[in-house]
Design a protein around this nucleic acid. Structure first.
Lengths: 341, 341
DNA sequence: AACGATTCGGAAATCGATTTCAATCTATTT
DNA sequence: AAATAGATTGAAATCGATTTCCGAATCGTT
């Protein structure tokens, strides 16, 4: 059987309380006793039972992370950042992959709130602000990555969708495009909404009329992008560039173009968002927006742990990080390409 | 404050024991009492405290998963399989990303063994068989994905490295290659070793002499593959095909070829292993070996839960799944390509 | 109606650590 | 040497559920 604190205490000739003190606060224990106890702990290979510790201390040292899809480099990198920072601070990370299923997501949330996780990080386009606030109002600490929620108990780390969206469209305009289609993600997702907003604002600034038929919805997946692109073509929409709400959807556009014999970027410019790993490898290389994903993960963990351990947040509740437009081949006209080289 | 079982008991006019019975075994509770208690549970939104439950029941319903790198579609997909099956069985999953750091890996293992996780799944090339057996000997349940360990307490799910390695080499030979380089992963990893073994066996079967200078070591990363390829070139090794121990390394080969102006597959055939997502998107499409990653994840969870809940494993301890050679563009000579179309 | 056999439900022990409170020991001051 | 303050240590309570053990209630049978 496992070794318990009483076993250590017995062998060291002290009380369990002393062993506990040696392992934790360390306050008021003679160097001599401490050494004696440590020796026994080493000898027996004692490790405190996590369940007992959690119960008594009301802490699990676990942070839950809820993502729509783990096998997507955007989320995988955010997780990597979370995991890294958490490990450095002695927290463990429970990952929940919802497969973009909202029901499963809510299930996970209630599953982790029972003291399984001290706090949760949500990277989700599916829950409404109200739902998120409701969790925080139950006095459960959550952090959000990738969007902003206005609730004074919810730390958020994100990039400015509107801002980079405008940059994307401006870049396309600079490349000579005026008929730019926008492929949105889930219609109700904040990201979709804000990226659309940036798109519209940029059009206005460049005095380009808005054509509603150039908007199509997808679901942030390759398949969704493919189908949205097909729909654009079918309805004979007139456009020379596509701004896809994320790289996955841009991949779908590539697929549709391959099937239809449309050459990128000669006949159609394409830009995505996320700087997924694939975007660098695909031909032509996909122009996209890079977000500091690992940094975002690290930052949210930092905020959460701060709040967990000092109760009051020492720093700003929200953190807006810079994104970077990565201009690659898919959005450069030949002329521009030559000029670049 | 949170609602506790005594609160429910008080409001329902029963004892905590009864509430517990309603929630768990259900034995010996009148339908009437049960209903009454359930009503109160719903009203109060009661959720049993996980820490208390874990302590008393000696179960955490958590499975730990240790992987070298989460942002790699091989591991991400295995995790997906694990996560899915675990969720269906009401288990949660703690993910530990070791970043290929063995020390961190050992740290994670001891961190989870303190009753934090009921069991652990290791997807690691870094630990020796002895180290793995040692964990199992401490009476802690672990499962292995991707390799075989001979210990009657350790369930394993994997594919036959030697077998598919031979298939890869045979395929290259059929394409007319006789000078085939092999880029290994970590020199001490089982995967590297077995894939090399398959390579050697295939050469022998095809009566092709073995040239040691055609072997280079990497570390399963793109960078490692790139550097290994560079070394092959520098020492002016004579070869027309490269078999990389995984797709990441094959990506490195692509990069080196791009720099050196070597055309794939015309001047050099390339095959990888893993069927990483990128392998389908890169130009030319990379020939590789597909492993049923999600299935592997699901299978190991099934075995572990079986063992956890029925103590004795009901099924076979090891499961060898079939892999599939995916012949794509990177290993097809022009002639073959035309013949195919 | 009386009896035994079940079923149901409560009191209390338990899981293994932490922490409070009080007791003891040490050291310093007078 | 005595008194007192402060540092160490231990006994026991505690965290919140589950489970054992036992008494009470219910049921069926004669």
């Amino acid at each position: 059987m496992d070794i318990k604190i009483v076993d250590v205490a017995a062998k060291a000739g002290v009380s369990p309380a002393t062993v506990s003190r040696v392992l934790n606060n360390n306050s008021n224990v003679t160097a001599r006793t401490k050494e004696k106890v440590m020796k026994v702990i080493d000898e027996l290979g004692y490790q405190p039972n996590a369940a007992a510790k959690n119960l008594r201390s009301q802490r699990s040292m676990i942070i839950g992370v809820i993502v729509p899809e783990i096998n997507n480099s955007y989320y995988a990198e955010v997780i990597k950042g979370i995991e890294n920072k958490a490990y450095a601070q002695k927290y463990k990370v429970i990952i929940c992959d919802t497969g973009n299923n909202k029901e499963k997501e809510l299930d996970f949330i209630s599953l982790l709130m029972n003291k399984t996780a001290d706090s949760m990080i949500l990277v989700t386009p599916h829950l409404s602000d109200e739902e998120l606030c409701h969790i925080a109002d139950m006095n459960y600490l959550i952090g959000i990555v990738g969007r902003r929620v206005d609730h004074d108990k919810i730390p958020c780390v994100y990039t400015d969708n509107v801002k980079f969206s405008k940059e994307v469209v401006s870049h396309l305009v600079e490349q000579g495009h005026r008929k730019i289609a926008f492929l949105s993600g889930y219609a109700d997702a904040v990201d979709s909404y804000e990226r659309l907003e940036g798109y519209l604002k940029a059009l206005r600034e460049h005095h380009i009329p808005f054509h509603p038929e150039l908007i199509e919805n997808g679901d942030f997946s390759e398949k969704g992008g493919y189908e949205a692109m097909k729909r654009l073509i079918e309805k004979q929409a007139d456009f020379t560039a596509v701004y896809a709400a994320n790289d996955e959807m841009a991949l779908g556009v590539y697929k549709a173009c391959a099937e239809l014999g449309i050459r990128i970027p000669e006949q159609l410019a394409v830009v995505g968002v996320d700087n997924n790993r694939i975007s660098r490898y695909i031909q032509p290389k996909l122009s996209t927006v890079n977000q500091p994903k690992i940094k975002m993960g690290r930052a949210i963990v930092e905020k959460l742990i701060n709040q967990l351990e000092h109760d009051e947040p020492a720093q700003e509740r929200v953190l807006v990080l810079d994104s970077e437009l990565m201009i690659r081949e898919s959005s450069l006209t030949r002329a521009a390409k030559i000029a670049e080289s």
